[in-house]
Structures are given as structure tokens and as C-alpha cells.
Design a protein around this nucleic acid. Sequence first.
DNA 1: TCTGGCTGCCC
DNA 2: ATTCTGC
DNA 3: GCAGAATGGGCAGCCAGA
Length: 635
Amino acid sequence: MEFAALAERAERVAAHDGDIETTLAVADLLADAGDGGANHGSTDDLPVVVRFLLGRVFPAHDTRTLDVGPALCREAIARAAGPNVDAADVEDRLAERGEIGAVAAAYDFGGQRGLAAFGSGRDALTVAALDEELRNLAAASGDGSESRKRDALFGLFTRCSPSEAAFLARLVLGEMRLGVGEGTVRDAIAEAFLTSETAHDGAESGDDDDGPADGDGPELTAPDDAVAAVERALQVTNDYGRVAVRARDEGIAGLREESLRVGRPVQAMLAQAGTATDALDAFGEVAVETKFDGARVQVHYAPHGAEADDGVPDGDAPGGEGTALGPRLYSRNMDDVTDALPEIVEFVADRVDAPVILDGEVVAVDDDGDPLPFQEVLRRFRRKHDIDRMREAVSLRLHAFDCLHADGDDLLDEPLTARHERLHEFLPDAAADLTVAADTDSIAAEERAALDAGHEGVMLKNPDAAYTPGDRGRDWLKRKPDVETLDAVVVGAEWGEGRRAELFGTFLLAVREGDESAAQNAGNDAADRDAGGRDADDPAPPGYATVGKVATGITDETLADLTERLEPHVVDETGTTVSFDPELVVEVGYEEIQTSPTYSAGYALRFPRFVGVREDKGVDDADSLARVRRFAGDD
DNA sequence: TCTGGCTGCCC
DNA sequence: ATTCTGC
DNA sequence: GCAGAATGGGCAGCCAGA
């Protein structure tokens, strides 16, 4: 498949509104991409197209990364755009247009305009060639690798038509902005390959109660069990490309051969926010657990070799007897984090004596076993160097709360209470307490106990619910204390992207500093010597200390209003960043105040969200650094 | 050899 | 992570 | 209610350049 064709079809997909139309357009595209390989006898483009649509070059479980971010991308675009363009020009345009793809498309790269779009350009890119180039790029490391990446990306942009350039820029940054996410692709795979017309396996249970056909619009025709088969295969493989191919080539039956395997991480089950009342109303009885402030881990362990997956033939393993596998630990996004957490590995290996897949949370604890701030976990979690030294400095502990596989039994479809019993059977030392409660008072008591012990809150789970990987459903609710609030002064902003292209997307916040103590902010030659008038190190005006930014919690309407109100107060503008004279006070909600190496206050808000403008407050009434310090518990 | 910028990935 | 928005 | 988009702070790893 020509890359130009993919880029143009993607544009058309993005133009659709309506889930069904979008899904159908994606399904068409997948069907065509799947054809290409057969017809042209070339490589199979389907898995690549699927991943590209989701803004990925590698599947989620793959450890490889491009290591190309906005900065490198801007430089490559600037070089491809010619000698008169530099990265700063690109950034200025980004501030205007608000989206890197549009910026890339607006430049004229090497006079390829139009040619490649019709596939007649001599060195027109194919999807397969682009994929390979990007894989090569990802493999670069060591001295000079950064400039080799820049060169490679520059070369690619040089060969791009406008729509290709837009696609490429978004792809390397992983932000396709097509309105196509995992759910859409899942439905589209079923629609493309598993409808009654397209399905390969005739043995399909024909539930065609699906076609009422009373609407006048287009409809999806894939049967529910086809969508379910795609979904389950995705949950256990985490590879959209592989699942698409399997759906096309082997149909529903092929998808159903994909199942749990010890050593292959599963998507984590996620939770929504909710209250005790929500939980009681929905579940009747509620399973209450502590919500730990740590990092999610999935433990895979096959001490003597895993059993063959129950009855399902494993295509590529001959004997059925799996090989032994030492404990492996995976993060929520299925990164392998085993090496960073040796004490967890030892802990599991010492106690478990059967193949298992466990779900849990790793937390940092002090000498008394009390929980430490999340930042301490971060110092350990993905570390590669000085692991032994840091092991001395920060102790980690595993709290396991679920069991997906135990000694040959897949437990995904078992109720939570049954899974928890198996968990307890295999790892009693680390199994998190699970209390069943039937009224708000006992839930409140659990919550108080968890908070008093220094934890984040409680999880409220449906005791009868299955484990649904990747699902952020209503069977697991998380309950945290109500947000605290700070009245901060807006001292800066950044122009937004995408749908916020014309608006400020982020606001820089500060508190009053001075009077009491100005230990932090020493001399700062306001003028510095930079003719451009840039701020020096600290973007806060005299008398203020920055404490973070807010960007969420703002409706589009309020955002437009804020932009209008603040724009006249801009005193400095650099790229996408502006600063203001202190003028406006906003109320900002947050979860916690944490120490910060980034902001001049020395503190920052965790999970900041906009609550409202304090019309009643002038800047002199805004909260002070002393108050922040008090709230942080650092008196 | 140190530091700063960038990137990816935890929440 | 949180939040808003369109379907 | 869901999926998608647009955004937050902080840490380690890695590379480039002083």
C-alpha cells in the first residue's frame, strides 16, 4: 500500500463524525490494507496499518520505542522545509496553527507536492517501507544516534506530500487525532473480517438478531460474538496488528485460540471514581480494599513450567509442557520491570510454588512499614542502574489484590471473591485485605482506616465481577478524599493544541511570596542580557513563586473566556509560551502537595484541576507560599 | 566528567 | 493521573 | 456510559555539549 493512499484515507476517516461512519471507514481501510498483500504479492500491510492508525509503530507489549519527541520532530521538519526555516520558526507556526501535523503539511517539502499523492512519484513511500525506516530509527542508540534519527526523519519528510507529512509527524509523536481509538479499531476489525459476508469460518453461531434495519443511516453488521472475540484476543495479546491478521485469516475460531499465557502480560483492569453509595446501589454488597499509592504490577511466575493452556493447542509450542519461568513483573502498560524490583522477585519466588498470574501494587515503605510518597516508588520503579544501592535506600513492598491464573486455571471469568481466595491460597503474606461491606458506615470505617494508615483511599469492587482486562468499568470504583483547593495567581500560559489551537491550553500558577521568607529566590537580574526579553530561570514575577500549571477542569466556554480576558495582559511571548502581569486569581483543586524540583515555590500540586475564577479576590488575596508550606505539612 | 534537554512512562 | 465533549 | 482528546507532576535513562 502506498503511504500516500493511507495518509489520504486517514484524512477522510478523521473528517467523519459519528461513531458508526468512522468505524465503517476504518473497516474499509483495513479490508483494503489486508487485500494489498495478496494482490501484489508483497508484504502484509494490515498489521502495520492497524498500528499506525493508533499512532504506534510497535505493539504495546513491545519494549522498543522511537525516542522521537516534539523537539526532534520539529527539528526534522525545519530541516526538510529548507535552509530558511529553523526549529523556532516551526514552533512559532505551531503556536498559530496549534497542531504539528498541520504545520508539517503547510511546508513545501522537496517539491513532491502532488506527485506522491498520486503514487507516481519515483521514490514514493510505501507503508511497508515507512514501517521499516521507523523500526531502523528506533534501533539507533549510542553516540551520534540522535543526529542519525534526525537525519532519518528529515529524509522521510523530504519525500512527503502534505497529507503524508501530517500523518508522519503525528505518527512519530503518537498523536493521530483521527478520532480513532482502540474501541473503534476493535469494532472495525470485526466489521472488516467477521461479518457474515466476510467471515472465514462458517461454523459461526448465527445470531443475526442484529439487523433491525429500521434506521436510515449506515449500520455495523458484525455480530456481538465476533466483537467479543476480537476484544478478548486483544486483552490477552495486546497486539492490534496480530489480532487483525488473525481475524482476517482464521476468523473467530482463530481469535479464540488466543488465551492467557504465563509470561505474557494482560491489560490491567481499571477503575472509575465512585462513592460508597454508588457502590452499594450497584453491587448490593461491596468488596472494600485499601487503595495503595504505588505502581501497578502484574506478576507472572511458572516455577516448574506452566501447564499447557487448558485444552487449547498452542500453535508454536510443540510439547504442551511450557518451560519454567522465573518471576516476571510487568507495569500497567506491560513494560517488563522485573530487573528494577529484585526484592519483589525474591519475595514471590520464596513463597509461590505453582504457575500464577497475580495483580497488585508496589509501594514504598519506611522502616516501620508505613507508606512513603509516590515519588519514592518512582525512584525505584524503572531503574536500570544502582539498583542494589537504591534497594537499601527505598524499601518496596508488594500488595497483591487479584489472581488471574492459578496452577493451570484461568480465572478471568471467576468472581472477584473466588479469585481472591485463590490469591490467598498462593500468596497469603502479600494478599491485600478484602472486606465485604453492606452499608455506608462500614465502608466509611474502612476508608478512615486506610487514610489514617497513610494510604490513598479505598477501592470499592463488585464481589461478583469477572476480571475484565483493559476495562475501566463500573465494577471497580476508586474512592479518594475530596479535593483540597488553592487560590493561585495566573502568571503565564501556553497556547493549546488541537481543539484548543486558538486558545490558551495551560495556565501557570503562582502564590504570593516575600514578606515572610524569601530564602528561595535570590538575586535575579530581571533584565539578564537577553535582548529578546525572555524570562530568566524563574518565570514568576517578583513577589511570586510558581506552584504548577492547570489545564483540565475547564469547559471550552470558560477557556474561551479566560483567553479573551488574559490576552491583553500578555507581557512576553516566546514560542507557545506567554507570561502575564499578575491579575487573575483562580481556584485550583488538587489531590496533594508534593515537593518539587521544578517550581520556584519548591512545591507543586498533584493532579491540579481548574475549579473557577475567584472574581471576588484580587492578587493580594491569593494564597501564600507560607500557606502552601503549611498544607504540605512542612511547618 | 558533569549538566541540561529530551523522552518515555509511572501516577 | 483528571476532566470535558460528542455520540 | 463510552471513547477520545487535551492536558497535569516527577522520576530515570540517554545523549549532546560544555
